[in-house]
Design a protein around this nucleic acid. Structure first.
Lengths: 217, 217
DNA sequence: TGACATTAGTATCGACATGATACTAATTGC
DNA sequence: GCAATTAGTATCATGTCGATACTAATGTCA
């Protein structure tokens, strides 16, 4: 029989820190929260858990403190150990920021943050895309009533690709996830759009077959 | 990691340990590696990273040491902080164990391991199911040539549900992932099954639409 | 006023995926 | 030979997906 490791008496001592990548959809693209620090350099929000605090609570506190507003969704992504420093990465999604807020930068312009931060951002964005398929997080990024084009734009921002309008609406209707209101909103140009509300529903539990079209990595 | 404020914040010091949940398909079900410890109690493999070692390398070392053989797939699942002890959970998949190996127990009979271990097992099994849809891990759990029924049984074990035989084979064939050999294997009863080989392929990149049939939690 | 651009929303169609059912094929055990 | 068992295929109804093209309602601008 193989020898079993001694039951973790002397583990490695390390400093635990938490990185939070906050993402928001904006105009069909993702923007990243990276405010300026004292010397004008931008950085992702970082912090550490307090004694007795869970990682999730610590991440929520750090995110709220940096952002100043509520987070729609926050999940743990990965932990990395570098020497005696362990960093737990969290990904968060929030509603689109106001226009004049310069703490947000386009995801395509994150080079100045450095390679390490960009890796965190990539991991967080990937995690958000995976979660989008599994939970109704997109609806929390929109106000109580919204147009279907706005909802689709949120999906496109997080998934990073364009979606087919008719297919998107068909799937949405057949899932009975949205309810039309009697209001319409005119955005200036073009035909006004009908406003919808989110209707939380029980799982449809439509178990589908297996997919063999994974992405090789 | 992103640059920290110069006003050096002292992060939380904690002991890092690693839990490894090793799963294997066996007869269409999952079995869990939980060998007996000194007092006859079963426990999941545990260990700690060494100085300078990455979490992934440490988990692989711990898994290999406990199991005595190679791991087909190993991925980080989640990190939990409890007081001054941080535990990083890894999920691993290995080929079905030999019949007489009593270090493996059925996934349905993990109650004696305690609630904490069962939570780790549930999280690891969920992660394995998600990864199964995204990478060709199932093929690494089988010998170089295998029958399609064996492959389907691996999928059913990891997903925890029965699959439709014709659909499973159709999807496999259309993905051109397997190549038939000229050998057939007779298992005693019934018609002999043709043996197949895995053919690693480039991604088909068939981007599909959005799903709105998530599982509420 | 009227053509045009723009955005919202729908209809239709072909291609393909899925799952149920039922069938054929090849082996062992009796 | 015959039943039981497992492998593998054929057929068919249904549903999903994406392309294309269409209608609808607004603002813009000549």
């Amino acid at each position: 029989m193989p020898s079993r490791p001694a039951s973790g008496r002397a583990g490695l001592r390390a400093t635990i820190s938490i990185d939070v990548v906050l993402l928001a959809p904006s105009g069909g693209r993702l923007v990243v929260f990276a405010p300026q620090e004292e010397r004008g350099r931008r950085a992702l929000p970082t912090g550490a858990p307090r004694a007795g605090e869970s990682l999730e609570n610590a991440a929520a506190r750090i995110a709220r403190g940096a952002l100043g507003s509520a987070i729609a969704w926050l999940e743990q992504v990965v932990t990395r150990l570098d020497g005696e420093s362990a960093t737990v990465l969290f990904a968060g999604l929030v509603a689109a920021p106001e226009g004049g807020d310069d703490a947000w930068i386009a995801r395509e312009r994150t080079a100045p943050l450095g390679a390490a931060a960009r890796r965190q951002i990539d991991d967080a964005a990937t995690a958000a895309g995976i979660w989008l398929d599994r939970t109704p997080i997109a609806f929390r990024l929109l106000p109580g009533s919204f147009t279907l084009s706005e909802l689709q734009e949120v999906y496109e921002a997080i998934l990073g690709r364009k979606l087919h309008k008719a297919s998107f609406r068909r799937a949405l209707q057949s899932a009975r996830l949205v309810m039309p209101t009697r209001e319409w909103r005119s955005e200036g140009r073009g035909r006004p759009a009908q406003l919808y509300k989110f209707v939380p529903r029980a799982p449809k539990a439509s178990r589908r077959g297996v997919r063999f079209d994974w992405l090789m990595s």
